[in-house]
Simulated scan of single mutants.
Amino acid sequence: MIRIVIADDHTLMREGLKRILESTDDIEVVGEATDGFGVLAHVRKGGFDLLLLDLSMPGRSGIDLIRQIRTESQKLPVLVLTMYEEEQYAIRSIRAGAQGYLTKESAGTQLVHAIRKVASGKPYISMEVAEQLALDIMTPEKPLPHSQLSNREFEIFNLLAQGKTVTDIGQQLHLSVKTVSTHKSRILNKMGMHSISEIVRYAVAHNLLAPFEK
Rank of each mutant, 00 (worst) to 15 (best):
I125V: 12
K184T: 10
Q162R: 04
Y101V: 10
R19C: 08
D168H: 11
A210K: 13
F48V: 03
A119K: 07
A107F: 08
T34W: 04
A134W: 04
L76T: 09
V166S: 08
R116L: 10
Q88C: 10
M1E: 13
N151G: 01
S61E: 12
A41E: 15
G16F: 02
S181N: 12
E32D: 15
T24F: 04
S147K: 12
N207C: 07
I69S: 10
L111P: 11
Q171N: 10
A134H: 01
N151E: 06
A205P: 02
V166H: 01
G59V: 03
V204Y: 00
Y101I: 12
E198M: 06
A203E: 02
T139P: 00
M193R: 03
L81S: 08
Q74P: 08
T11R: 10
I63Y: 07
A210P: 04
L208T: 12
V78Q: 12
E72L: 10
Q99N: 11
P58Y: 04
S23C: 03
V29S: 09
I6F: 05
D26A: 11
A98K: 07
S126R: 11
L53R: 13
R60Y: 06
T24C: 11
I94W: 00
H42R: 13
L53Q: 15
Y124K: 01
T71K: 14
E141M: 04
P145A: 15
I2W: 05
V29W: 07
S197D: 13
V180R: 05
S93H: 07
G59Y: 05
P143I: 11
A90W: 00
R116W: 06
A96V: 01
G59M: 08
V43I: 10
